[in-house]
Design a protein around this nucleic acid. Structure first.
Lengths: 251, 251
DNA sequence: GTCAAGCTTTGGTCTGACCTTTAAATTGAC
DNA sequence: GTCAATTTAAAGGTCAGACCAAAGCTTGAC
């Protein structure tokens, strides 16, 4: 019978699950401010009642939003599901999953870092505040003071690079950078015991030049110098670690 | 009584939920290959039996993995939960949520694009294959042919930039780039009806110069020229759209 | 006033049932 | 025998109701 009826193009009807619909509603409510961040949602039983769904469906929706970083749930009286805005941690988890799942090689991570950190330095030169400069100086001073104390040196190095990145005030790029950081460290052996004093002196000089450009609001110079610095680091690392190493578990 | 007992540093004991434990097990199994991608997982009832949990808990775990992009579930006989590796779509969803939640401004998105696309051009020059060059040429020819046909022109423009980006063969950076693309278009009015013929001629010239550098494997030139091209586009766009526009709904 | 015991609220989990979807198996007309 | 319609079975989707566990609140003994 129905062979000659009109067949409008209609691809794969999207069957919506109850939990999915509720999740969508809550997601939109949290992002748009209808559900106030920090103030607990109605209880599961209440959500079930008002939505007409079962508690099981409500809970599935809440689990989804939890994974998305949109709420945190705590048991017990005074607990509940508290909305929050997705932070760097949620972004980082998603990126880490992507990296593991797609078998991203270590070399590709170095490429990404080499790609985004110089532009971050440029943005830092443009957007940096006085407080950013102070933190940058403090990190630099810390490294120079810890010149011959390797754990502190490494820690200071991370702090310095973080200071540059944060000074960019570009939250999304900062998120990308922070997401690949831990994986890089994990793959390169956590700290870098392979730094000769000569290398460390060179690092201090390079940092100083980048910081000068940021202070002078010279974006082009900051980007160029950071690219140079990272390129040197990369040659240094690639001489010791195979760029074909596959990234494994996170932390 | 317990004031002087030894107090080892112990922060916030992590209380694990049954669903969380199961999710972790399945996640690890999928990523490590114990559960074969494409081959359905055991049924929910079976998972419940073997794990000793209830079906409700099993389903919460499955919902979590579904959000993470690690599996797809279909009802009906022959259906089931089929493992998959997280793709660009999952990454894009997470990034889109981050952008909405953190109220990232349109201007910041332009910064991100300006930051990562030039390095992508450099990587394209390094890693491009012959097939990549062919696609790049085809996109270029398509644009020139559609010079006075705006929708096709815009489509061709996207295709050309995609061709450059894909030629980089850096899956993570490609993921970043693809994630911010739709949001950029959404915020800038989807297509760009504001292109005068003079602008379009300039675009064709700029594209040709970038492509030449990629063909010649000249990474530095490709990056420089792409940066120049994007910078011009950005000034063009910012004259028409406020960079302070907040990004709203996706798609 | 202090502190411990119990109460109450809220999420966490389980059991078992029933509905819906979809592919496979069966049946029957030709 | 072949093919289409029908039936059946195997999944996921949903629900209802119970009980457990955590954690703040209340109350009462001291």
């Amino acid at each position: 019978m129905p062979t000659t009826q009109s067949r409008p193009t209609l691809g794969r009807i999207q069957v919506l699950k109850a939990s999915g619909v509720l999740a969508e509603h809550l997601r939109e409510g949290i992002l748009s401010g209808t559900y106030v961040v920090g103030a607990a949602l109605p209880t599961e039983r209440h959500l079930a009642e008002t939505s007409g769904l079962s508690r099981a469906s409500v809970r599935e929706a809440l689990r989804m939003l939890e994974v998305e970083g949109l709420l945190a749930t705590r048991p017990g009286r005074g607990g509940g599901s508290v909305p929050q805005l997705p932070g760097h941690d949620a972004l980082q988890r998603a990126i880490a999953l992507f990296i593991r799942g797609r078998h991203i090689r270590f070399g590709a991570l170095l490429e990404v870092r080499g790609a985004i950190e110089p532009p971050l330095a440029r943005l830092a030169a443009i957007h940096r505040s006085e407080a950013d400069l102070a933190e940058l100086d403090a990190a630099q001073a810390g490294m120079e003071a810890a010149f011959s104390e390797l754990p502190a040196w490494t820690e200071g190095n991370i702090r310095w690079h973080s200071a540059v990145v944060l000074a960019s005030h570009n939250d999304l790029l900062i998120g990308f950078w922070k997401a690949i950081g831990p994986l890089r460290y994990a793959a390169s052996g956590l700290d870098e015991p392979h730094n000769s004093p000569a290398v460390r002196s060179a690092v201090i000089g390079a940092h100083r030049r980048v910081a000068d450009a940021i202070r002078a609001r010279d974006g082009a110079a900051a980007e160029r110098r950071m690219a140079h610095h990272i390129s040197a680091y990369r040659q240094h690392i690639e001489a010791q670690t195979s760029p074909d190493t596959e990234l494994a578990t996170l932390e």
